[in-house]
Amino acid sequence: MIFVAGVSKAYRDGEVRREVLRGVDLEVGRGETAAIVGPSGSGKSTLLNVLGALDTPDAGTVRVDGVELSASRPAALAGFRNRSLGFVFQFHQLLPDFTALENVIMPGRIAGRSAASLQAHGLALLGQVGLEGRAADFPQQLSGGERQRVAICRALMLEPPVLLADEPTGNLDAASGAQVLDLLNGLQRRRGTTMVLVTHNPEVAGRCGRVLRLEGGRLTPERARNRERR
């Protein structure tokens, strides 16, 4: 499902060239969950952005859901992100001018579908996360945990085969974080979605099938599992 080989990425910080990724290799199978851990500034988010076609590597191959990302044009990559990827960000990144339901169905609107055809599915998703009564509320009317649950619904709206989550609980209190993680794991299992999650929280990482450590620009397996935890 996800195949990464020899990916390198460097940033220029003034006169200094910072090599964030150095020949990273990664394979994540269909329905598998992988957590990428590492200290702050180790390049976890950069790797996730590369997997999500939001950033381009300086070298190496990235293939997600059968699509060679480095060979695709920007418009094709946008379509790929819309169809095949769901993003959950640390800071929910909901659109403040749109209601919870409108935020959830936004990927469908981008895909060119009408609001009417998406609403039933959007409401069902909100129902699954216990927010059916908050569909008409705007993000500023929701709590942090509720916002992140809406963001998860949005990521799953078009049932993408791959879900990428960047510190999904990083901005939440312990109770809300656990609730969001349960939700994410439950939805992922039911749908058989491939999930790559970036975190520096060992507890969060422990709930994933595989844990990989990114340090010094290199990715090393910290813990491998044969079977996903149920």
Partner: peptide
């Protein structure tokens, strides 16, 4: 965010 969600 719109671009990340696939808005070309």
């Amino acid at each position: 965010v719109l671009a990340a969600m696939g808005a070309p």
